[in-house]
Structure formats: structure tokens, C-alpha cells
């Protein structure tokens, strides 16, 4: 069962990676990174389920916080001027 969870999360990750790689606009890539961050939280959760250790959830919390701050910063940057300028 756990293996099945890992496989589906890996499928999600690869789909996100595909979008990050393909673009075509900067916000598309930023969105891919944002979603990838949330998927990583899911990864940590499944790892915590597998091992029964709670430090994985600390990583998940920190990861979602950092990804949120990063996304807000990226969004502000996009609002100000394009990536090409």
C-alpha cells in the first residue's frame, strides 16, 4: 500500500516537473514549483506514516512555509516586472 502511495506521488512529481520544464511562461513554471512543494509535503506525510517518526512532519511544515514565502516573493516579482527585464 505504501509503495502505491509513493508511486502515485512520484507520478504527480513527474507531471509537475514536465510543466516546470515546458513552461511556456514564467508563471507556469512558478506554479509548477508551488504544486511540487505541496506534493513534497504529501511525500513527508507518507514517510511519516511508513516510519512512524514525527520529524518528517516538521520537515513538511517547514517546507510548506518556505514554499509559501517563496511563491509570494515570486508573485511580487512577476507583478513588478517580467523575468526578462
Amino acid at each position: 500500500m505504501i509503495t502505491f502511495f509513493y508511486i502515485s506521488l512520484l507520478v504527480c512529481c513527474s507531471l509537475c516537473m514536465w510543466r516546470i520544464g515546458r513552461g511556456p511562461t514564467p508563471p507556469d513554471r512558478a506554479m509548477g514549483i508551488d504544486i511540487l512543494g505541496i506534493i513534497v509535503v504529501g511525500f513527508c506525510a507518507v514517510s511519516a506514516l511508513e516510519t512512524g517518526r514525527d520529524f518528517y512532519m516538521n520537515i513538511a511544515l517547514a517546507w510548506s512555509l518556505l514554499s509559501f514565502i517563496g511563491m509570494i516573493a515570486l508573485a511580487k516579482h512577476l507583478e513588478g516586472k517580467g523575468f526578462d527585464e
Partner: peptide, 25 residues
């Protein structure tokens, strides 16, 4: 973590959509 994701994920999506719109997508 659930509470945190419920708050932050829509917020960052909104900010990103706004940023995308302002950057001319």
C-alpha cells in the same frame, strides 16, 4: 499542516495569478 496548507496554498495561487496577469500573460 492541514490548517497551514489550507491557508497558504490558495493565497499563493491568488498572488501568482495576479502576478501572471500583471506581467502580461
Amino acid at each position: 499542516c492541514v490548517v497551514f496548507i489550507l491557508v497558504t496554498s490558495p493565497t499563493s495561487a491568488h498572488a501568482l495569478a495576479r502576478g501572471a496577469y500583471k506581467s502580461g500573460v
